[in-house]
Structure formats: C-alpha cells, structure tokens
C-alpha cells in the first residue's frame, strides 16, 4: 500500500475494516480491504467505475458477505452479520441505486426507516427531517416512485437518518444528478457532518469530496491502494492520475 500518514484518524477509530475478501459467485471482487474511519470524520472512498466501492459499502452494511476479514464498529465484530443487526449497531446504509419504496408515500418511507440510535438517541424525527429537507416536507404525501432522481436521493438519505445512525455509508449520492442537485447534496452532507455523524462517502469524483471529507482512501481493482487526508491525495498527482478518472 502506498501510504499517507493517516495519523489523524488513529486516535479514535469508530469503524475498522480489516482484510476483507468478497466474492460474487466464483469471482473475487475485494482483496483484503482495510479501512479506518475516525469518529466524527468523513472518509472519501474513491475509485473508478467497477473498482469495488459499492462492494465495500455492501460488505460493511451486511448486504454482501465477506468471506474473510473483520469489520468492527466500536469494538463489536460485525462481519457476516445480517443487515438488520448491522443497522441496529449504528451503521446506516444509503445504497447507490437509491431503492426508495416506490409504492409508498414519502412519509411512509421515512416512517419505515424510523428507529432509535444505539444509545437510544432519537435526534432525527420527522419534524427535524422536514426541517432539514424542506423538499420532502412539501412532497410528504407523494408516492416515492413518482419523485425525480435527486428527490429520491434526498429521501433515501433522510430515510436512513431516521434510524439515527452513528456511521453513515453514502454510496455515490451524486451519481447521475444534475450539477445543481449535486451541489445541494454536497451542502447537505456538509450540514450532516456538523451534527457529528461519521460518514463514509464512496465517490468517483474527487472534486465533489474536496470540501466535504477530510480523509481519503483509494480503491482499485478491489485493493486499497492509498490512504491519506483528502488534501494529501489532491496534492499527489501520481496517485490521482493513476487511479482516478480525473
């Protein structure tokens, strides 16, 4: 692994992924992936199309089962657990293909996501979500399947927040959205950061992450090839040229 310092996250690691291998059928997709996420920090997981970002996120969320390695959240090993157990351990997952419940209203989507956090916290309520996402308040009775891509993206993030996660996994929230919506999503993530939630942000676009995350990991062909602060990554032209489509 080419490596940056990464000293900043060493202090208080909330989520730690160590040496996970993931297979789809017979093909190996992840090769010993390691990640460390500092409490209250935002880590950008960067990589090209097909590099393995989503697979890493799915493995953490329990949607894909790692065949090897460990995933620990606050010291509790979660590798191989069911998605609902992982969610109740405080990890909120926002998938890349959004997956709103299309037949349900916006509000029902939010209600399905409602749960207490791991310390019993109920910071996110319907009122607070509607406050943070005025667009959802306006559409609360609309069928989620009738919303635009950007609106659905807002809804999936809000739906996961209703579960009061300590760690939020965001898989390419800007994918396929118009620039103005991408901007709005960026602003939203910055707002969320201020609430103290830890975020793992999978992205192809480093520039989107610049003002958002402080740490960065680069994945390529299922291997983590670089870890540093995002500023360090940005300054490292060799790595950005080689592994990111910039």
């Amino acid at each position: 692994m080419t490596g940056g310092t990464n000293g900043s996250t060493a202090g208080d690691v909330i989520l730690k992924v160590e040496g996970i291998d993931v297979f789809y059928g017979a093909s190996k997709i992840l090769f010993g992936v390691d990640l460390e996420v500092g409490r209250g920090r935002t880590l950008a997981l960067l990589g090209r199309n097909g590099a393995g970002k989503s697979t890493t996120m799915k493995a953490i969320a329990g949607i894909a089962r790692p065949r090897k390695g460990s995933i620990t959240m606050e010291g509790q090993n979660l590798a191989g657990e069911r998605p609902d157990i992982i969610a109740r351990a405080g990890i909120g997952y926002v998938p890349e293909d959004r997956q709103v419940f299309t037949m349900h209203s916006v509000e029902d989507n939010l209600l399905i996501g409602m749960k207490k956090g791991i310390r019993g916290q109920e910071d996110w309520t319907l009122e607070r979500v509607y406050d943070t996402f005025p667009i959802l308040a306006r559409m609360k009775d609309r069928r989620a399947g009738l919303m635009s891509g950007g609106e659905q993206q807002m809804l999936t993030i809000a739906r996961t927040l209703m579960g009061n996660p300590d760690v939020l996994l965001l898989d390419e929230p800007s994918e396929g959205l118009a620039p103005i919506i991408v901007q709005a999503i960026g602003d939203l993530i910055r707002t969320l950061r201020e609430t103290g939630v830890t975020i793992v942000l999978a992205e192809q676009n480093m520039h989107f992450c610049l003002g958002i995350s402080e740490d960065a990991a680069v994945i390529d062909k299922g291997h983590i090839v670089y870890r540093d602060t995002i500023a360090g990554l940005r300054a490292n032209e060799e790595v950005t040229k080689r592994y990111l489509a910039i």
């Binding site: 609902d84 349900h104 409602m114």
Partner: peptide
C-alpha cells in the same frame, strides 16, 4: 399501521428493509 407499511415494503424489497434495521 407501521407493521403493514413495513411488510408491504419488505414484500417488494426485503434487503433494503433489512438494511434499515428491521428483522424482516
């Protein structure tokens, strides 16, 4: 009811409901 809403959502997309912390 929330029960009914969850069950209907799970009928169409059980993994997503599960990822929201619900024992489907």
């Amino acid at each position: 009811t929330r029960f009914g809403k969850i069950v209907r959502a799970a009928a169409l997309n059980a993994p997503m409901v599960s990822a929201l912390g619900i024992r489907v």
